[in-house]
Amino acid sequence: MPTIAPSVDDAVAAIPDGAMVVVPRESSGVPMEATRALIRRGIKRLSLVALPTSTLQADMLIGAGCVETLETSAVSLGEFGPAPRFTAAILGKTIAMKDATCPALYASIQAAEKGVPFIPLRGLIGSDILAHRPDWRVIDNPFGNNDPIVLLPAIKPDFALFHAGMADRAGNVFIGRDRELLTMAHAAAHTVATVEKLYDGNLMDDPALSAGTVPGFYVDTIAVAPRGAWPLPLLDHYPADGGHLAEYARLAATPEGFARYLDSYVYAKRAA
């Protein structure tokens, strides 16, 4: 039975240093309150899988020194420009980067979901993405004739971590159309979700809701975090906080500015 944690800090306590954690793209429910909690706790050596891209979340975790390995297809601040701490970490070689392409990440996570060791994917042949991925292979399609195709190993995360609109007390989490969250929960050994609010009743009792629900069976821990994606958007709930993201882009351009940002918006809560 999933636990309803008393706070977001409590909810992420189970995620240890060195864990492989999969997190979603900006439009699918990024757990920013949980991310701030992880940084406050000083989590280290994360193997972060951003499915299939990331923005503020990966940039902050990298800047705060929480990430050892990053596997994703892109990190930027979208309309607010390059992701400064990600860029600095690559240029300064302080993280190990596994460059991918979006569908390769979806496919690798789906392989874990199915419990199979690898999955084929079109594209990639002749690219330098493939050239720099010694863990990927090219085989000749065994059902074809002179048809090379790439094989990707399954990605089996220790934790899936995301934010969604609501959950019930049985631990079922409503995700609506953001079904990659379901794939993430299926693939990961454990799932921690933060939600805007608790739902009175059981989400599985309403067919309109149950079709967009991650069953509690796959979920370990839930915490309520109103505006838990802030300053990123939670679609159907609130837009991005553009003013704040512009401030982040400005401050995070330097290590000193980034440290000031963390003091103001991440560590301040611990001191309070």
């Binding site: 891209t53 297809s73 892109a74 992701a83 690559i90 240029l91 392409t101 569908p103 720099h132």
Partner: peptide, 26 residues
């Protein structure tokens, strides 16, 4: 969409390849 210079020691880094390594083919 990745970097300029040697991949392991780049001079410039861009966000990353997004879906290009697949969609450009299909």
């Amino acid at each position: 969409l990745v970097s300029i210079g040697d991949y392991d020691q780049p001079n410039v880094r861009f966000p990353g390849s997004f879906g290009s390594g697949y969609l450009y083919y299909v």
